[in-house]
């Protein structure tokens, strides 16, 4: 494994500007992502947190250009490692996928092919990008399984996905994703389906690999505890917008947006027993018809008349801690 530039190298790897993703069909259009801006440095881990349906996965898939082009309207600019994701040819994009950007999914069972052994799948991915013989690719696969600390890797190389437990499957998935030394790893809720005991193993492993390989990671989760474990930066997503963005300490310990505050208050961890949890009332807005102002206004306890008409701009409250709220905390 060739170790890449150390995490200290401070140049920007990902730059996303005013990204908008709309799914159009004959009947309706769904605005899943509504103007996202962020930059990610090399070797940095950003966690995107938000409720189900807030557009986290859609944003990740846009970075890989995986959306069906006919039904999807993408606006704004995305740049990864100097490549303009919107502009590159399909052939170049295929090269980028896996080699520069790769992705791991929430449900490893659907992402691995049940008909091939784990070893064959890793070798296959390696051979798509590097012109090496099958034997060398299998050797690489073995190294990768060792890298993700799968116990008895020789035996696991020949195992089919269904023969592995959830945790091992997720490790195999990570091995596939790391097979070509990507500089950006997109992880879409890779630990949500796992037991707490296995989740923590995978988190520790991911963090160690990220440090060793100097990768940047965008990690989607709806669990604030996971974000606290792994993130350098945290982006809070609501109805397709980043409503708060900043360092993990700033966002989790000193939230500025009412939604982030609400999420923290509704987390069960270390709550007093017998006292109702501070749940955020209501449900997220309908993405087919977003309210004109702050999309959190219908559920916000601090909402004023202005919030319903005026879209809050992103304002920097200091030190790169940005928030989209007219009346921040």
């Amino acid at each position: 494994m060739n170790v890449m530039a150390p995490a200290a190298a401070a140049d920007t790897l990902v730059r996303v500007q005013d990204l908008k993703v709309t799914f159009v069909s004959r009947e309706e259009s769904v605005s899943a992502v509504n103007g996202i801006n962020f930059e990610l440095k090399r070797g940095e881990v950003m966690c995107v947190i938000g409720e189900s349906g807030s557009g986290k996965s859609v944003m990740m898939r846009s970075l890989m250009r995986l959306h069906p082009p006919k039904r999807t309207r993408i606006e704004g600019a995305m740049e990864v490692d100097g490549y303009d994701i919107q502009g590159v040819s399909e052939k170049q994009m295929r090269q980028l996928r896996g080699a520069t950007v790769s992705m791991i999914f929430q449900e490893p069972m659907t992402a691995l092919d049940p008909l091939y052994t784990v070893g064959e799948q890793i070798a296959e991915t390696v051979r798509i990008h590097e012109n090496i013989p099958q034997e060398a690719a299998m050797k690489r696969a073995l190294e990768l399984l060792e890298l993700v600390r799968v116990p008895s890797p020789e035996r696991r190389l020949k195992a089919y996905p269904h023969e592995l437990s959830g945790g091992l499957r997720q490790r195999a998935m990570i091995a596939v994703a790391l097979s070509c030394n990507p500089s950006l790893l997109l992880a879409d809720e890779p630990t949500t389906a796992l037991d707490a005991s296995v989740q923590i193993q995978v988190l520790v492993l991911l963090r160690r690999l990220q440090k060793e390989l100097g990768m940047s990671v965008i990690f989607v989760t709806h669990d604030l505890g996971v974000a606290a474990q792994i993130a350098d930066k945290v982006a809070v997503m609501y109805a397709g917008r980043l409503v708060e963005y900043g360092s993990v300490q700033d966002v989790l310990l000193n939230p500025k947006h009412h939604y982030t505050k609400g999420m923290l208050a509704s987390t069960v961890a270390e709550q007093e027993k017998g006292r109702p949890l501070g749940a955020i009332p209501g449900t997220p807005p309908d993405l087919r018809a977003l309210p004109p102002g702050c999309s959190f206004a219908p559920r916000c306890r601090a909402a004023k008349a202005q919030c319903r008409t005026e879209l809050p701009p992103e304002t920097d409250t200091g030190g790169g801690h940005r928030v989209r709220c007219l009346f921040p905390l």
Binding site: I200, Q201, V204, G225, A228
Partner: peptide
């Protein structure tokens, strides 16, 4: 194995 909400309390060993 319970995760803390505090980013300053990280586990290094499962």
């Amino acid at each position: 194995c319970q995760l803390s909400m505090d980013p300053n309390e990280r586990v290094d060993q499962a």
